[in-house]
Amino acid sequence: MLSSPIAINIFRFILLVLTQVLIFNQLNFFGFINPMVYVLFFYWYPVRNNRPLFLLVSFFLGFMIDLFSDTMALHAIAAITLAYARPVLMRFCFGANYDFQGFTFKSTTRLQRITLLLLLVLLQHVVFFTLEILSFSHILLILKKILFTGIATLVLCVLLSSLFAMEMD
């Protein structure tokens, strides 16, 4: 049943939303660190995809998390920004390989994949926390949150992505 890519992605979608809101949003490590592991969705989503659909699915993913965490549409903005920027980030990380038709995740090095995750996490956190606080007088607070939450998210994402390493296409 779980063999078709659509089923896998729907399953992953639901699981990531639930993990995010029921576990990681309630973590409050050191009082403020809530890693945003749903960034993994953008790492795991098939490389060759229907882009408008990807954008809509990302919007929906972000919006579901927003509904649960009462953050209006902040996760939604961060999520569609990630979805929109993903091809650029991938080309930056994987270089010319990315443009070949037969490109798969298997042909990339571990370092390249971690760099991709790092950039995704960084972009997501910058967009999210800037809009969340939306005040220049709190710039230090924004930077602090980006830095510490970012590190926590990255570590968790690297761990989870190697734990659930799967066939990428």
Partner: peptide, 29 residues
């Protein structure tokens, strides 16, 4: 794709900014 991105961002921004200045959204909570 760019158009879709801009439209979705605008929708999200409207929802967000509305509730930044006024009450929490009545429909999405």
């Amino acid at each position: 794709n760019a158009f879709l991105y801009v439209v979705l961002t605008l929708i999200s921004l409207i929802i967000t900014v509305n509730s930044h200045s006024y009450h929490q959204s009545k429909y999405f909570n």
